[in-house]
Simulated scan of single mutants.
Amino acid sequence: MTHRERHDTMNLQLKIISEKVKENEIALFWLGQAGFVIKNSDDKIIALDPYLTDCGERIKGFKRLSPKLILPSELQPDIYITTHIHFDHFDFDAIPIVASCPKTKFYGPKSCVDKYIEIGIDKDRITELQLGEEINFNNMMIKPVYADHGSLAPDAVGILMNISGVKLYFSGDTAYHPEKMDDVVKFQPDIAVLSVNGKFGNLNSTEGAKLANIVKTKVAIPCHFWTFREHGGDPLLFEKEMEKYASKSKVKFMTQGEMFKYAK
């Protein structure tokens, strides 16, 4: 790691830890790819699909083009969620390091649970996410919902969250099947985070915009682009398609490491 990279990681870690969040508000940080950190007013930190290392290059030759902004040892979340087993969502090199933080609890569908156990994480720190089942604690609700990421990740899920009244939808990696997303439509998220790279079975820009309209999100945040050359993605086209199909929703483009606050 270069001096500049080390400086960047220290900045983001400090920003997450020191940021004060009001009641009925969340702070959302983009880590790049489909990785996000959410912080609430109780100083609880949720990490979802963080890709923190270069394990994709080691495993499959996918070279990382984006900076690493926080070290796995610095993340120290209360909750760590993986939506499916692919390396850019289930970071095989980061998770054993994150697990050294004793407070961190791990969540994911069965394929992820099996891999958590294989890594050596205690079962009492792991919760399996099963479609349609809500998990409620403190001022949070987590609910896995339908996603279609093909035969290589058959139990992939999207995620609904209600954190202090702010409703979020993370599409995870999914194809466009709005007829199977009634849970998301009924939820009417304040924020929809959509993977819109259009390759490997994911939503493309047009489908992402159409889905944003169908679920009536107030804010749409595109993600899952520009981390690997193989993944593609066109955020400018997404903006144009949002104007065409979901003009009532605000589009929020985030830079990697940026914080976005939202309050009810």
Results as ranks from 00 to 15, higher is better:
95 I>F: 03
99 A>E: 05
101 C>T: 12
101 C>S: 12
102 P>W: 02
103 K>T: 12
103 K>E: 11
105 K>M: 14
107 Y>V: 12
108 G>R: 00
108 G>P: 03
111 S>H: 09
112 C>Q: 00
112 C>Y: 02
112 C>P: 03
114 D>E: 12
115 K>V: 09
115 K>F: 13
116 Y>K: 01
116 Y>Q: 03
117 I>W: 09
120 G>V: 07
121 I>R: 01
121 I>M: 09
122 D>L: 14
123 K>M: 11
123 K>Q: 10
123 K>F: 11
127 T>R: 05
129 L>G: 05
129 L>R: 02
130 Q>F: 11
130 Q>H: 10
131 L>Q: 07
133 E>N: 14
134 E>H: 08
134 E>A: 15
135 I>V: 11
136 N>G: 11
136 N>T: 12
136 N>V: 13
137 F>T: 10
137 F>H: 10
138 N>G: 15
140 M>Q: 08
140 M>C: 15
140 M>L: 15
143 K>E: 06
147 A>N: 03
148 D>A: 15
149 H>N: 12
151 S>V: 13
155 D>L: 06
156 A>E: 06
157 V>I: 10
157 V>M: 03
158 G>E: 03
159 I>R: 00
159 I>H: 01
159 I>K: 01
159 I>A: 02
160 L>W: 00
161 M>Y: 01
161 M>D: 05
162 N>R: 03
165 G>V: 03
167 K>T: 07
168 L>C: 07
169 Y>F: 15
171 S>A: 13
171 S>Q: 06
173 D>N: 13
174 T>R: 02
176 Y>I: 04
176 Y>N: 09
176 Y>G: 08
178 P>H: 04
178 P>T: 03
181 M>H: 06
183 D>K: 06
188 Q>H: 13
190 D>Q: 10
191 I>S: 02
191 I>E: 00
193 V>A: 00
196 V>S: 04
197 N>H: 13
197 N>T: 11
199 K>N: 15
200 F>A: 11
200 F>N: 11
201 G>M: 04
202 N>W: 05
203 L>P: 01
203 L>E: 01
204 N>C: 09
204 N>I: 02
205 S>T: 08
205 S>D: 09
206 T>G: 06
206 T>A: 11
208 G>T: 08
210 K>E: 04
210 K>L: 14
210 K>A: 07
211 L>V: 06
211 L>A: 06
212 A>Q: 04
212 A>P: 11
212 A>V: 05
212 A>F: 05
213 N>G: 10
213 N>V: 04
213 N>E: 08
214 I>L: 07
